[in-house]
């Protein structure tokens, strides 16, 4: 069942084109030139209920503008948009009651107060009955294991702890859709993993549809079955995330530890990344991985061998360049 649907969705901005220098600034006082920028261009997308969709693209691709249109913050210039049957920019109360947005830069928490205080406020804002409030709060607090932090002033929480609290506040009213903008930005590996596990649990146990915007491809790869790639406001890819990465993953990294000091030969089309007396690191085209593996096992005495996927950053760069 479709929960988000857009057709030919377009957003154009008019922006002041300032000429450089003091004279340019002076001229701007009397005569201004504007240019039109198309942030989102004829964008079609469909998200089904319960899906976990990743929205990826380089800076300025139009992701935030798209999310702003989906949440009703801005109105589209052209095209149709429908989220849970509503036209978002009407900003109807019934619509806002059914979704939540977590944006890294726009905290809903009161820094001077505790998360408990903010939750109490959000209970009233979303008109959540007491029993449901307690049930939801306990569920999320247990899931994140943050019971001890509920009465700590938000400004005294770490970045990771704060993000967990943001998510609890956002999910308190059981939204049908959760829009996430860079939820793991600036977090360490442990906190990022906790957030990812939490989001996965919420998506699976509560059936919440999640649209995730992130520059961390690890988030997208681990969480999102489907991905949408966009650049210059246009949709470039919409489909299975694994397929996307598989398609654009050209090479693998092979690390070989030799028993003896072996002066090994290098198969054609492989690139040396590191070479010591007993260690060799190669970048190999993914199609010949098996052959290269057979070659080394057959010709050398090997202590250990490891094959890693290509660095996710390189794959993404390729996706943006080639899609």
């Amino acid at each position: 069942m479709e929960i988000i649907q857009t057709e030919n969705l377009t957003k154009r901005y008019k922006r002041y084109k300032k000429q450089e220098g003091l004279m340019g600034s002076m001229k701007g006082l009397f005569h201004r030139e504007y240019e039109e920028k198309t942030a989102v261009d004829a964008f079609n997308m469909t998200v089904n209920k319960g899906e976990f969709v990743g929205l990826i693209g380089p800076n300025g691709a139009g992701k935030t503008t798209l999310v702003k249109m989906l949440t009703g913050i801005i109105a589209p210039t052209e095209g149709t948009i429908q989220v849970m049957g509503y036209y978002p920019n009407k900003l109807e109360k019934a619509f806002k009651q059914q979704y939540a947005v977590v944006m890294g830069q726009k905290s809903q928490l009161f820094f001077e107060l505790t998360t408990e205080d903010t939750l109490k406020l959000f209970q009233q804002i979303y008109n959540i009955p007491e029993d449901q409030y307690k049930k939801n709060k306990n569920f999320f607090v247990d899931l994140f294991q943050v019971k001890d932090l509920m009465n700590v002033q938000v400004r005294n929480l770490s970045l990771g702890e704060r993000m967990k609290m943001e998510l609890i506040v956002a999910l308190l009213h059981n939204p049908k859709i959760l829009f996430l903008d860079e939820p793991t930005i600036g977090l360490d590996a442990v906190a990022s993993r906790q957030i990812r596990t939490f989001l996965k649990d919420v998506n699976e146990s509560k059936g919440t549809t999640i649209l995730l915007t992130s520059h961390y491809m690890e988030d997208i790869k681990v969480l999102c079955k489907c991905s949408i790639v966009m650049n210059h406001g246009r949709k470039l890819y919409d489909g299975n995330t694994d397929l996307l990465f598989e398609q654009y993953q050209k090479s693998k990294k092979m690390t070989i530890y030799f028993e003896n000091n072996a002066d090994s030969g290098i198969p054609e089309s492989c690139r040396i990344l590191e070479k010591t007396k007993d260690k060799l690191v190669l970048e190999i085209p993914k199609e010949i991985t098996e052959k290269v593996l057979e070659f080394y096992i057959g010709h050398y005495s090997i202590r250990d061998i490891g094959i890693e996927e290509e660095e996710i950053g390189s794959v993404v760069e390729r996706i943006y360049r080639e899609v």
């Binding site: 949440t71 900003l91 959000f122």
Partner: peptide, 12 residues
């Protein structure tokens, strides 16, 4: 600075 929208997305 673009943070006003946080009030637009809650039912108030």
């Amino acid at each position: 600075n673009g943070t006003f929208s946080k009030y637009m997305v809650i039912p108030v």
